[in-house]
């Protein structure tokens, strides 16, 4: 299993990288390569030119801003492991660190990048769904300039994002955890570290009396693109019980595409979505309540 031949360049500035990428319509950016290299080795992809951005230290940044609503901005070369270990990221948006623990194995996270995982647009990956849930964005650059793509315009289809061939994703922005909200995520995989059969992340808002004010969940491995669903209406009167959680799961299912493959039947996947919705929404609710208690 060896990649097909390609030309290679390792720019030392982002401007050089943008020019190289624009020079060939079949060029591809190499960052962590933890998804790209297997695709090349299996010859599922055969770009003419690889633009290796691993020399661009300016893209390694992890920036946390607490001004206004707050945002975590992750640079294109920040490895999963570095983001996961960042205390500021954990404090400002804990769902990022929580979800990163589910991304493959630590050895893969040492090299793989969070932004790379997002623009790889794999619907069975955690971080695209997390960005979707949090309503984040990705900033991209090309020789023509810079633009920011909202997450709802980012994922087009399986392994397909709305980036143009000459664009490099330079950062991803995750909004901070809002006051009065809590987060959680979980997944079921055949083996620890494998792609999930189904995964769920949730954000739940509670008021001072412990009533649910909002509930949203995002799903991975449940369709061609990550899906986020608003589940607030399932929690009638703001109450959260087993019945309300079950209703929330039923509310989500029509938005999901449980498909059959060698690992799971469609019915089994749908059942996982039900179980994980109940489990994760409850955990996010508990997290919100706990944060309220800590802050008061």
């Amino acid at each position: 299993m060896k990649p097909a031949p390609f030309a290679y360049t390792r720019p030392t500035t982002i401007e050089e990288a943008l020019i190289a990428l624009a020079s060939d319509p079949y060029a591809k950016v190499l960052a962590g390569g933890q998804s790209l290299v297997p695709l090349l080795s299996m010859r599922l992809a055969a770009p003419a030119l690889l633009v290796d951005i691993n020399g661009l230290a300016e893209l390694e940044t992890i920036h946390v801003s607490e001004a206004g609503e707050g945002v975590v901005r992750i640079g294109a070369l920040a490895r999963h492991a570095a983001v996961e270990a960042d205390e500021d990221v954990r404090r400002v948006q804990p769902l990022i660190s929580n979800a990163l623990k589910l991304v493959a194995h630590p050895t893969i996270r040492n090299r793989g990048t969070t932004v790379g995982s997002i623009v790889h647009a794999d619907a069975s990956a955690e971080m695209p769904a997390v960005l979707m849930l949090l309503d984040g964005s990705v900033t991209v650059r090309s020789v023509d300039g810079e633009r920011t793509i909202g997450v709802h315009d980012l994922f087009v289809g399986p392994l397909e994002s709305s980036l143009a061939p000459n664009e490099i994703a330079v950062s991803a922005q995750f909004p901070a955890l809002a006051e009065g909200t809590g987060v959680a995520c979980d997944e079921v995989a055949r083996r620890h570290g494998d792609y999930a059969l189904c995964g769920v992340a949730a954000v739940v808002g509670v008021d001072g009396a412990g009533a649910v004010t909002s509930a949203r969940a995002a799903y991975w491995s449940m369709g061609d693109v990550p899906v986020a669903v608003d589940l607030t209406e399932a929690f009638v009167g703001g109450r959260l019980s087993d019945e309300h959680l079950a209703a929330a799961a039923e509310l989500a299912l029509p938005h999901l595409e449980a498909t059959e493959d060698i690992h799971a039947t469609a019915d089994y996947r749908a059942q996982l979505a039900r179980v994980l919705t109940r489990r994760v929404v409850r955990a996010a609710y508990d997290d919100a309540v706990a944060r309220r208690e800590t802050n008061s």
């Binding site: 290679y8 933890q34 299996m42």
Partner: peptide
């Protein structure tokens, strides 16, 4: 496995474990 699953090719890159089969030597 040559696609990052089995871990047999794990080496240390600046002291950190990585899969040698998921890296290009030139990189």
């Amino acid at each position: 496995c040559e696609h990052g699953v089995c871990g047999a090719c794990t080496i240390l890159l600046d002291g950190t474990p990585v899969r040698a089969c998921l890296l290009f030597a030139v990189s």
